[in-house]
Design a protein around this nucleic acid. Structure first.
Lengths: 179, 179
DNA sequence: CAGATTCCATACGCTATCGTATGGTCTAGC
DNA sequence: GCTAGACCATACGATAGCGTATGGAATCTG
């Protein structure tokens, strides 16, 4: 799915890769549809509750925001999965799930920014900018996998990106630890 | 293609929509492949030479950069086409074309930023940020078509986005006309 | 008008993939 | 050891989409 899209989720291929056959597959799943839906449900869980719960343990909102950015851009499989699903946004099975996940992320991001002292409307706009940066980061990486910023130049580039994304934060509160 | 991806480019469907039949199609094109390749070639032309030539008439580099940003985000069909192609980056027909177009855009953007006084390495990083913002903008719009920033809120949001994208420009040269 | 060329329609074969039908094997509990 | 249920394999039918074969119509050229 992550590499070939929905069309690459093929029952016989899948069965073979698992060392079994179609017969087995159709015992466990009613449909190819049921497999897709089940997979999407699993993904939705992992993408929302898991990550967000992990962030809730951080007290300082600015530190939490930085950590959120770090997690977002560090999870390559997650990023590529999102871009893969993005291309099926029209699909009635994928669309709603994708929409829920994206909204959840956006509202969480907006909230995190507000807690850092950004006024709500600017925070929402900036959350959207961050979301687009996220989608675009993995999208571009797919287009230009050997671009320097995704290889050797990755560290300085990500610093640059985070700098841009954090430009909205009230100066006094950025990097409270002085790092 | 723009809405359903490569899988939606179906000979019979296409022929019917044009009020003709497969027989006709296979007279004009050897293959379905030939149609895809021809289409991609056309797209590549329009996406590079056309737009860039239009920008070369602008003298002031800062004005040109702003105009470039405006054009990028105003061309919705172009944006959605790019995200649609993005999901086929693995395809041997799409990949190379996409890579060329993206590289061309990136180097042009980098050059435009350098001409505005941004140091080369920062310019490159920032061009990548702009490219990801572009990809993400249309990607997110596909996920959340009824999000406010793509409807009523579009104008102020785009202002916000351009503000973020222009943050790197040396202050003295931003908006030279004072607008 | 005759023939050639261009363009299009219908009918067919081929393959991939979905889903089903049917029977086989293995383990648990009696 | 026997039966039931869980799990899997093989073989089949159905459909969608690609590409081809073949003939027809329309236009151009001499």
């Amino acid at each position: 799915m992550r590499e070939g899209g929905l069309a690459a989720v093929v029952v016989e291929t899948l069965a073979e890769r698992l060392g079994t056959t179609k017969g087995s597959f159709y015992w466990h799943f009613k449909d190819r549809d049921e497999l897709v839906v089940t997979g999407l449900e699993l993904w939705e869980q992992e993408m929302t509750e898991a990550v967000i719960a992990r962030l809730e343990t951080v007290g300082d909102p600015v530190v939490r925001l930085r950590q959120l950015f770090d997690l977002m851009f560090a999870d390559q499989p997650g990023g590529f999965m999102t871009t893969a699903l993005l291309s099926h946004a029209q699909d009635p099975r994928v669309g709603p799930v994708l929409q829920r996940v994206t909204r959840r992320r956006l509202t969480y991001l907006t909230g995190a920014l507000v807690e850092c002292g950004v006024p709500p409307d600017r925070a929402h706009h900036h959350a959207v900018v961050a979301a687009t940066a996220y989608l675009g980061y993995f999208g571009l990486q797919r287009q230009l996998p050997d671009e320097a910023v995704f290889g050797a130049e990755a560290k300085p580039y990500l610093r640059h990106l985070l700098h841009v994304l954090e430009a909205e934060l009230p100066a006094a509160r950025v990097r409270p630890s002085g790092a």
